[in-house]
């Protein structure tokens, strides 16, 4: 792959890779760094890219691996299960009157999902990818993707219903 092909195929994925990185590391700066690093790595190994069939899936998978490495080295305990931490950070229902507050709260809920569920929710509900593509990117089976997707959505619904019920009471 030469520079022109790289610019036309890999660089347009920048925003998608950035969103993917941000959904995993939950940090804008770290996500930007990850995108730069991945692009540099892809460029260095560009001779191998011609053999890759689905470059988007390959880049997304590489980005996830890079971000998981970052989480392991920089923030080893970042991934905390939702249920154990939510109560402490749950806002007062009266503070959630504004829609903006509610959307911020939903973002926090998503960020607190386990990494795999967070990534699957992102790839499906934000990027709109097929289950098979998500399975490739996350290196899991399609069944595992469906199960984790369902669990993640149900957790979100449970938390939303809890805050909603308190809000209207």
């Amino acid at each position: 792959m030469d520079a022109a092909q790289f610019n036309s195929v890999i660089l347009p994925l920048t925003d998608q890779l950035f969103r993917m990185a941000k959904s995993i590391v939950c940090n804008d700066e770290a996500a930007k760094d990850a995108v730069q690093e991945l692009n540099a790595k892809l460029w260095e190994n560009r001779s191998q890219l011609d053999k890759v069939q689905n470059l988007t899936a390959f880049a997304m998978k590489s980005m996830r691996n890079l971000c998981l490495d970052w989480l392991r080295t920089k923030k080893p305990n970042r991934d905390v299960p939702l249920d154990e931490n939510l109560i402490a950070t749950m806002p007062n229902p009266h503070q959630l009157i504004e829609q903006k507050d509610m959307t911020n709260y939903v973002k926090q809920l998503i960020d607190k999902l386990p990494e795999l569920q967070r990534t699957i929710i992102h790839l499906r509900d934000v990027e709109g990818l097929e289950i098979s593509e998500i399975a490739t990117i996350t290196a899991t089976t399609e069944n595992a993707v469906s199960v984790n997707l369902s669990r993640a959505r149900q957790k979100l619904r449970k938390e939303l219903m809890a805050i909603w019920n308190e809000k209207i009471m």
Partner: peptide, 17 residues
């Protein structure tokens, strides 16, 4: 109750570096 959830998905999808 679910509006904010789908709104967040839309916001995230439009996010750019």
């Amino acid at each position: 109750i679910y509006k904010s959830l789908f709104q967040v998905f839309d916001e995230k999808a439009n996010e750019k570096m």
